[in-house]
Simulated scan of single mutants.
Amino acid sequence: MTTTLARKAPATPTPAQRRALLAALADPKGRVPEYTSTRVLDAIYLARWVHEVTNTGRAAWNARLHGYEGPTFLSINSRGRAALLTEAGRTALREAGPDGRLPEGTAWPTARTLHRDGLVEYRDANGTVHPTDGDDGVRGPLYAPYVTELGRRIVTGFPQAHRAV
């Protein structure tokens, strides 16, 4: 008797998958790092959070149809960017002010999670960046969360961003 184990695509990224997707987000071309484990690569590909592209950003399957035999890599796509955010995080980043400040009503767990992933940074009134929001448990937060370049990229994508198929 043979048993077939059907692999199921993950609904949300594991910590290792999140690290790979965030590293891809930080790469100028959206490349998943080469050192990423095969298990993680398989999972994020199966979940369709990345797709295979050539060095010029063309879809690898299409390039191969036209005779391309060069190197390819996995690149994060819009689904991969969306998988990194909760609905609250997505809303906070999209509703940030023109100066990048998150909306006043953003819950601290949301801001903290976005900060952990490098999508926001805490700044004081002078624009100086701080490692935390400055909350000592008595006065409340002293510094406001502002969207980083990585935070903008997760919402808007890359200049050559690929759409999920």
Rank of each mutant, 00 (worst) to 15 (best):
F158T: 02
V138H: 14
D117T: 02
R31Q: 09
T128S: 06
G89L: 11
L119E: 13
P71M: 02
G57D: 04
G134T: 06
R31T: 00
G151L: 13
T36C: 02
D117F: 03
D42Q: 12
L93W: 07
A9P: 02
T86Q: 09
L22T: 06
T56H: 09
G80N: 02
E149P: 13
L84W: 06
W108T: 12
L65Q: 14
T56R: 07
V32W: 03
P103S: 13
G127T: 14
A6F: 12
P109W: 09
S75C: 13
T106P: 05
V138E: 05
S75M: 13
P131H: 03
N126A: 11
K8E: 12
T132N: 05
N55I: 15
H51A: 06
A11G: 05
A9F: 00
L93Y: 07
L5C: 00
D133G: 01
A59T: 15
T12M: 15
T38V: 07
A24L: 01
R64H: 05
R163A: 01
E69W: 06
W49R: 09
V50R: 09
N55M: 15
N62Y: 14
T12S: 12
S37L: 14
R18C: 08
A111W: 04
G67R: 09
V40S: 01
Y122I: 13
L41P: 00
A96L: 02
D124S: 04
A161W: 00
Q17M: 12
A111N: 06
R90F: 08
A63Y: 04
T91I: 12
P71E: 11
I44F: 00
P33H: 01
I154N: 03
E149K: 12
T110A: 13
T156F: 10
R90P: 00
Q17Y: 09
R153D: 11
Y45Q: 11
P15A: 06
G97L: 01
G67L: 07
D136W: 04
L102V: 13
Q17D: 13
G67Y: 13
A47F: 01
P109I: 07
L150S: 14
V147S: 07
P71S: 15
E34T: 12
A96W: 05
H162L: 11
R152S: 03
R31C: 01
V165K: 15
H162M: 10
V147D: 10
